[in-house]
Amino acid sequence: MMHRKVVLRVVSKFLIPPILVFALYVQFHGDFGPGGGFQAGVIFGAAFILYAILFGVETVKKVLPPWVTRLLLVVGVLTYGLCGVAGLLLGGNYLDYNVLAHDPLHGQHYGILIVEAGVGITVAAAMITIFNVFAGQTGED
């Protein structure tokens, strides 16, 4: 049904992997430059959305079935939350990263890394979920 958009499809096929890489870059570069879990998640999600726009939602669902996105949604949120709990169990307050490693600075680093990962996963999963739901509404009128 999208035969005439061959160019678009080919271009995007080439584009999507770099976008994903870029997303990962943004994810882990957040400590130094602008970026972080949230932006990365959005970009990551955007890649899939782009894919879905061009190749159809069903194709995306084959790659990333709904239960996976749902699972990721929860995993992301819980990663963040449980990282805080870890701080709590290790003798600090909730979300205290200093206690995560022997050196507080390292602890902070780990903490932020984990937390950002959680944010990234959640946001990407959320974006994909929301889009999928909207896209799955077709045929109503």
Binding site: R70, L71, L73, V74, V77, L78, G81, L82, G84, V85, L88, N93, Y94
Partner: peptide, 23 residues
């Protein structure tokens, strides 16, 4: 051990418990 953390737990427990429903 958790007792001093009750103020945080008050919010954190239901907060983290909620997503489990999705599972």
């Amino acid at each position: 051990m958790l007792e001093p953390h009750l103020p945080a737990l008050q919010v954190v427990v239901p907060l983290l418990a909620a997503p489990v429903c999705v599972l």
